[in-house]
Design a protein around this nucleic acid. Structure first.
Lengths: 232, 232
DNA sequence: GCCGCGATTTGCGGTAACGCAAACCGCCGG
DNA sequence: CCGGCGGTTTGCGTTACCGCAAATCGCGGC
């Protein structure tokens, strides 16, 4: 990946968007590139947090394993998303494992390099705080959902969120363009594989979705799904 | 509250702890004081975020109301805790309402004043990011709990966390020194008042807790509670 | 001291969702 | 073309938890 390609990635990244050209250029200069094969991890939960990453292409699933062996999916991440930084800044081990769900290309900065960047370009700190604030809000919303809403609503809301941030238009509706298993959905919504499967089956029967026995879902009637997500 | 009292509060606050004296003094100088009566709100969910607050004395309960009228308790906050800042920095309305559960005294900074402070004292930004990172981790942990663990474990873990951050030693064990209703616990753990009451009743019968029909709980056998929180 | 209000306790169904188990299907490699 | 593997679907019994409703109690006001 040459310099202009790196610049293009950096300026579309949420952490750098809207910052002056020289900031973007400096950031692009300091970055390394790393490729992660499908199924591989960028780093592992518990590792020392030494590097910041930004997704250039591809997609990651951020997994957290609990002490008793259960697994939850914190989020999916795509181009422009920042990975690992919270742990680096706090000086704690990475709290989760980002797995490549497709082949993924990342830009990488060492802790020191990013520190220099932030000192040389103060607005970066503001941007970073903005992003962390967004994560906090998102987590609060999910907590509220899991704590108060029933499973059907949570699954609907989750599918809609993923579709909003990664969906592509196809003939029959909006497609989720990567492998999203029932297990993944279960681990995002705090339920079981079985319940997800049953629920989706119902929706497929009603023509809201397509994608029986296929992990590429297509949402045919998004409006109906919104109704389910919001129904009292 | 005179200047030296304000300084004492500021240097114990998580946002300023360990920073140079001149930073602390500058912060204390820029602060106003505000008193909130028991039961009153510091601000309301949805208000424009214009000020940063730090709790000096007292205790707040951070509530979030969902669109469909349900309520969840995000956290309790005591002396040293930062309130409202995430929303101010992100330039979004306050996402929750902090209610005084006891009479509470706060230090207040306007958005502009805090901005000046952060520009004059760059390490502040780092501290702020640290704190936000802590919130993210805490939320991820709670999400994981609500999503994967059963009610009994969640209640035990919640009581233990509150006891750790606010418990006081008394003759029979560790007391939670403020009014914590069954309803509050229900809204923190994502369950109902009834289930919390039943669960606590059981524990009181077993001698793990004291506090029947009283909102000041005393934990008599913390170790047993830890076992419950961690049991497979 | 008595009364009434709000929080808590407790009983009793009801049910959403789990968990096991088995059948099913599409894909990939041989 | 076939067989096996991994993800999915589906049936069925179980259960943890909810939701209503009534009884109980402590506390503050009169």
């Amino acid at each position: 990946m040459d310099k202009s390609a790196r610049i293009a990635v950096v300026e579309r990244a949420k952490l750098f968007a809207g910052l002056p050209d020289d900031t973007v250029a400096a950031a692009a200069d300091g970055a390394q590139v790393r490729v992660i094969d499908k199924g591989e991890a960028v780093f592992r939960q518990g590792d020392d947090a030494t590097h910041h990453f930004i997704v250039a292409w591809g997609r990651l699933r951020l997994d957290q394993t609990t002490p008793d062996g259960k697994n939850i999916v914190l989020r999916f991440m795509g181009p422009g998303d920042l990975v690992g930084s919270v742990a680096v800044w706090r000086n704690v081990p990475y709290p989760a494992t980002p797995l490549a769900v497709d082949e993924t290309r990342l830009l990488v900065w060492s802790e020191a390099r990013m520190m220099e960047l932030m000192q040389a370009h103060p607005p970066l700190a503001m941007k970073a705080m903005n992003m962390m604030g967004g994560r906090i809000e998102e987590l609060q919303e999910r907590l509220q959902q899991v704590a108060t809403q029933q499973v059907e609503r949570r699954i609907a809301a989750t599918i809609l969120k993923i579709a909003n941030q990664s969906g592509r238009k196809v003939e029959t509706g909006v497609e989720i363009p990567f492998a999203l298993s029932r297990q993944d959905l279960a681990e995002m919504t705090g339920t079981t594989l079985h319940t997800v499967s049953r629920t989706l089956s119902g929706w497929i029967d009603e023509g809201i979705l397509e994608g029986r026995r296929s992990s590429h879902l297509v949402i045919c009637r998004p409006h109906r799904l919104v109704e389910i997500a919001e129904q009292a």
